[in-house]
């Protein structure tokens, strides 16, 4: 069996090695923290303007859209990463959310809120 020990050259965790491992973990953790804001694009925040514009065609308000966003970022990532909202057409999004509503424990009103949020954001892209 290929022993990974060979590649690591009998890694012995003396103090400098341990410090290096801890530094690696700390760096990755800090990078996650610093880059965190970038990924907010996968679930943009709702503004009053977006809600007003969307309410002309859908029965929505800021509260419902915020609730939809909250469910979107909590329930969907339990199984997979969030796809970019522009990745699917509005019609596809409705079908995707419908097909996954049961496994995400979404009640009908929650499913509607998620769809309303996605369609509102999708419209501005």
């Amino acid at each position: 069996m290929l022993r990974i020990n060979a590649a690591f050259g009998r890694l012995k965790l003396t103090s400098p090695a341990e410090r290096l491992i801890h530094l690696t973990f700390a760096t990755i953790f800090a990078l996650c923290f610093l880059l965190g804001c970038e990924t907010a694009n996968y679930a943009p925040s709702i503004t009053q303007q977006m809600a007003v514009a969307s309410s002309r065609k859908q029965d929505v308000d800021v509260v419902k859209l915020e609730h939809g966003r909250n469910l979107f970022v909590h329930r969907c990532i339990e199984c997979h990463t969030l796809p970019a909202i522009w990745h699917y057409t509005p019609k596809d999004w409705t079908e995707v959310v419908d097909s996954m509503a049961h496994r995400a424990s979404l009640k009908p009103a929650e499913r509607d809120a998620v769809i309303a949020y996605i369609l509102t954001v999708r419209k501005r892209m």
Binding site: I28, F29, L35, E38, T39, Y42, T81
Partner: peptide
């Protein structure tokens, strides 16, 4: 548990 999702990447600690 600390986790960060970057698009299709999941980093977990």
């Amino acid at each position: 548990i600390a986790q960060k999702n970057f698009g299709r990447w999941i980093l977990d600690y």
